[in-house]
């Protein structure tokens, strides 16, 4: 391989490596969907879920900034993190709701039992 040919190959690989990652459209959309899902699940009413919702929003925002500066690869990873946080927020909200409902049902049952056999 001649010297000029090998240089051009190295340049091409470098070009692919730096700016070659495509804009993570699918992840932009899915992370947005996950955040919306967390909001709809009532994450803002549960402290621990709120924390992860905020993390998701911040990381997504950070990822969008990175996309603007051309770092699509790192942006994709941040979006995946945002999505994971949003999904965790949904799960935490669901857990809190289920626990509250179970507690209420147990209390109701106790009240009923007292009514039957005071």
């Amino acid at each position: 391989m001649s010297k000029p040919r090998s240089w051009s190959l190295a340049l091409a690989i470098a070009a692919l490596g730096c700016g070659g990652a495509p804009r993570p459209e699918a992840r932009i959309a899915s992370s947005q969907g996950a955040i919306r899902g967390a909001e709809e699940a009532g994450a803002e009413g549960v402290p621990q879920a709120t924390l992860h919702l905020k993390l998701a929003q911040e990381q997504r925002q950070q990822a969008l900034e990175l996309i603007k500066s051309g770092d699509n690869h790192r942006a994709d990873l941040l979006l995946a993190r945002a999505e994971a946080d949003a999904e965790l927020a949904v799960a935490l909200a669901r857990e809190a709701t289920a626990k509250a409902e179970a507690e209420k049902a147990a209390e109701d049952l106790e009240t009923l039992k007292k009514r039957i056999a005071p």
């Binding site: 992860h52 993190r81 946080d85 669901r94 857990e95 409902e101 147990a106």
Partner: peptide, 28 residues
């Protein structure tokens, strides 16, 4: 990827707890 794995594990734990609570509610 470790961060994401952490969240997935936490999510599985939370959903497991939620399922237990749902079952307890159904029982009550």
């Amino acid at each position: 990827s470790a961060y994401i794995a952490l969240r997935k594990a936490q999510r599985a734990e939370a959903l497991g707890n939620a399922a237990v609570a749902v079952k307890a509610k159904e029982g009550s």
